[in-house]
Every structure is written in structure tokens, then in C-alpha cells.
Design a protein around this nucleic acid. Structure first.
Length: 412
RNA sequence: GCGUCGGUGGCAGAGUGGUCAAUUGCAUCAGACUGUAAAUCUGACGGAUUUAUCCUACGCAGGUUCAAAUCCUGCCCGGCGCA
């Protein structure tokens, strides 16, 4: 029995599609936004608020973080992550592959999912990418990073206490089995957009081998196979040819769905999607990892992406920025101190008309915790509402118009 | 009244002869953030500006010195102690 059923309700050739995914913990409609709850909590927001106020469909947690704290054994003893965190809806875990990048090549460099327009400082050249024959801890300190990759896996220095740990594809799958999410990801290497094509190819090959190993480990666990779906992750960097290559190889493996990983420059996301989605099987869900600005979601949907996850709505919320139909606003700006209008009347929903900008501006300035909560609920609802509008528009054959209209107002 | 310690930029608080328009924190202003090392980080923060420099500033007024927030004198104000 398959733990995941993906039903496509309507789709356009090589384009947007609407459907739903059933998991052992309920179903969700696609295209879907997966709210990120890295450490088994969506920062500043309770599960009850997610359900009733933010209209959250799916939550995504992180293997690396939960492994470090509290450890997968605790979560497993609690009865799995659903039980532990009291989220009984669809749940996903990410493999820790992104941390290979953010704590490794991207460490301290001002780059994460996208390159910045600013010239990045201290770009390490390919020397650091040379895997040592025998792993030596000093390599980490030598290059001031917390993670380093080799063929077998990745060695991490915990950002919490400096302890050295080792992740392999097998270990990542084992931890994710213990966490027990409905969907989880194969362990991959998220590469830097500043890596050369030859490195992208080398890392891609390794990610493909890791995908195979992740898949084997999962398939050998009969119990886990019944309850958990495994997604493989496409890499390939920014070159469309490499994207297509990686998608062809990962897409041919027996995964339940596919993640599209990597880090981009703003302008080549579209190309990467065009090249990287086509080789994937049409009947399986595609998840664009770590992307969540409205304009990027719309772009992804137009290419046939079914799932997104992103830190952006909650992180922005915590630092004082709200999404509105007319673009993002930073509540810490002087102009909102005396702005007694609702947060975003046009979006509707819980926080949009119950609280004023002046009140939230006050909470942020006073550093009250409730600021983060209200703002997070607002932003999450905004994105959920956008996803819902997107689905409706696909069903009604007017996605392109919707996209144009939305962006025109949003980017004015 | 006597003694003593002190008065520094919006606030707190360093500095105790030149490298001081003055460390740092807070506040303020602006910016960044996309599979969360993030309730975080970056920049600006006396005035003018040809961006080189000039002007005004460390309670007030004088003085010493090539040079004073820093030393001296007087005054004003505050804390503490004794009367």
C-alpha cells in the first residue's frame, strides 16, 4: 500500500496543475505551501493557531535540527513527531541536505537560497570542496565552516555545542524513519550558486548516488514504507543542461515524489525549472524546496510545481515585515507608528482586520513576543490564501490572468 | 557651612594632555532576509560640505600649553558624609 496518493484534478500541458495529496495524516490540496517548523515548532505560533487561524495544511520540520536537539530517540519515544509536537496533519521532514550547504559552502557568506546582488566576500574556491581521503576535523576549522562533504556523507560540527557528527544518506533516512513524518526527503547536497559547473556535476553525481542509497535504505524498511513517502531531490545548479540531467536520473528512480533543490540567482530560477521539471514523471508531486516569495511561487506553479516550503513568511514576520496584497510593508518604519488602519483589509482572515498597523508597530518596538505571533499568523494566512486563490484560478482556467493581476497590484 | 565624589553627544556610561567629533550599550533612522546557526544581521547616527576639509562641542567663565573632554582658578548644579 502506498503511503501517498497524488490526484491531479486539472492540469495544463507543461504548466500549472491543481490536485491533492493524501497521506496517513490527512490530505492537502496542491499547489500547497508547507509551513516550516524546523525544530518541531513553527516559531511563535501554536498548532492551534496554525489550524484555526493560519489555515496551515502541511508542516515541514528539519532532520538536522531535531537530530541535534532533542535527538530522534526522544521524538520516537514520544510516539513520533506528529504526537510529540501535537500536529496531527500532514507532516514532512527535510533531510538535512540544506544544512550541508548553509553550514558548509554557504557558511558566513551572505548566500543562501539566492545569491545576493552584493559581491560576496571571501568566496572559497574549489579547494575546500576537495574531500579529504581520511576525514580530519581540522579541515572544518581550517576553512571556518561547520560542515564538509565527502563521498560517503557529511561531517558536521554542531552549531550548538561544537560536537562533531556524521551524516550519511543511510543515517538521514534512519533518523527520518524515527521522526515518522508522512513525507521525507533523500539526503542530498545543496550546492552553492557560485560553484562551477564541474563542481555541480561532481556534486550532482554524488547526490544521485546518495539518492540511490536513501531509496535502498527506505525500501528495506517494510514498516516505514507503509507510512512514509520518500522524495528524491534534483540538483544540478544553475545550468539548464545539468538540471535536466539531474532530473532525468532522479526522476527515473522509484521515489514517491521529487524535490527541486539548489540555490539560485534570481534570474535563473525560471530556466532551472523549465529544464529540471520536464524529465520528471508527470504523475508524481514536485516540491520546490525553500522557495516562498509570492512571485516565485507563482513562477513555480506556472511550471507545474505542486508544493513549496519556505521560511520567509515566518522569518519576515518575526523581523517586522508583513505581506499585503500591495506588497510587503516593514512595520518598523516610522510611518506606521500612527497608522490605525487594519494590517491588510484586502487579505482578510484573522489578524488582517482585528489589529492595526499602529498596534503591531508598537508591539515590535516594545519587543513584545505577541508581535511575532500576530505577524506570523498574518503572513502564513496571506500565503495560504494566495495558494487557495491560485488553486481556484487553475480550476477556473484563469491562472495566467490571476497571476498577472496579482503581481500588478503586489509589485506596484 | 565644612569635607568629599561627580557633572561627557537623546539616555546610560568609557575616555583623564596630542592617534577624540569622542569606545561601547540602549534609543532613533534606513536596509537585508527564500529546504531557519535568524525574536537575527548590516549600515547611519553634532552641523555644513567642493567628501578634502571647515565649524560647533565633553556644566559655565577664565587660564596654563605648540596642543585641553583631560591640568589650574573661580562660579553654578548634583550625590554622599559631618555639622
Amino acid at each position: 500500500m502506498n503511503p501517498l496518493t497524488f490526484t491531479i484534478e486539472k492540469e495544463f500541458p507543461n504548466g500549472a496543475r491543481v490536485g491533492n495529496i493524501q497521506t496517513p495524516h490527512g490530505s492537502f490540496e496542491t499547489p500547497a505551501f508547507c509551513t516550516v517548523g524546523t525544530k518541531g515548532t513553527v516559531k511563535a505560533v501554536s498548532v492551534e493557531q496554525l489550524q484555526t487561524l493560519a489555515k496551515t495544511q502541511v508542516v515541514l520540520a528539519n532532520t538536522y535540527h531535531l537530530f541535534l536537539q532533542p535527538g530522534e530517540g526522544i521524538v520516537s519515544n514520544a510516539g513520533g513527531l506528529h504526537q510529540f509536537m501535537n500536529w496531527h496533519g500532514p507532516l514532512i521532514t527535510d533531510s538535512g541536505g540544506f544544512q550541508v550547504f548553509s553550514l558548509g559552502a554557504g557558511f558566513g557568506k551572505d548566500i543562501s537560497k539566492f545569491t545576493t546582488s552584493r559581491p560576496s566576500k571571501n568566496i572559497l574556491t574549489s579547494d575546500v570542496k576537495t574531500a579529504p581521503a581520511v576525514f580530519d576535523e581540522s579541515v572544518l576549522t581550517q576553512h571556518s565552516k561547520l560542515a564538509i562533504v565527502d563521498e560517503e556523507g557529511v561531517s558536521f560540527t554542531s552549531h550548538i555545542d561544537g560536537t562533531l557528527y556524521r551524516f550519511t544518506p543511510e543515517r538521514s533516512v534512519e533518523i527520518q524513519h524515527a521522526l515518522g513524518a508522512d513525507i521525507f526527503f533523500a539526503f542530498d547536497e545543496c550546492t552553492s550558486p557560485e560553484d562551477s559547473n564541474s563542481y555541480q556535476e561532481k556534486a550532482g553525481n554524488r547526490t544521485h548516488r546518495w539518492a540511490e542509497r536513501s531509496l535502498n535504505t527506505h525500501q528495506n524498511n517494510v514498516a516505514a514504507r507503509k507510512n512514509q513517502a520518500l522524495f528524491g531531490v534534483v540538483q544540478g545548479g544553475r545550468d539548464p543542461k545539468l538540471r535536466a540531467w539531474s532530473a532525468g536520473i532522479i526522476g527515473a528512480m522509484d521515489f514517491d515524489g521529487f524535490g527541486i533543490g539548489g540555490s539560485f540567482s534570481k534570474k535563473d530560477l525560471g530556466e532551472a525549472l523549465t529544464a529540471g521539471i520536464d524529465p520528471l514523471p508527470k504523475d508524481k508531486p514536485r516540491h520546490l524546496l525553500g522557495i516562498g516569495e509570492p512571485e516565485d511561487i507563482l513562477l513555480g506553479v506556472s511550471h507545474g510545481i505542486d508544493m513549496f516550503d519556505c521560511v520567509q513568511p515566518t522569518r519576515m514576520a518575526r523581523t517586522g515585515t508583513l505581506y499585503t496584497k500591495r506588497g510587503k510593508i516593514n512595520l518598523l518604519r516610522r510611518e506606521y507608528i500612527r497608522d490605525f488602519t487594519p494590517l491588510d483589509k484586502e487579505t482578510g482572515g484573522y489578524s488582517s482586520d482585528k489589529y492595526t498597523k499602529a498596534y503591531l508597530a508598537h508591539l515590535f518596538r516594545a519587543k513584545e513576543m505577541l508581535a511575532a505571533t500576530i505577524a506570523s499568523i498574518h503572513n502564513l494566512y496571506f500565503i495560504e490564501s494566495l495558494m487557495s486563490d491560485i488553486r481556484e484560478s487553475i480550476r477556473d482556467n484563469r491562472f495566467n490572468d490571476f497571476r498577472t493581476d496579482f503581481l500588478q497590484k503586489y509589485q506596484q
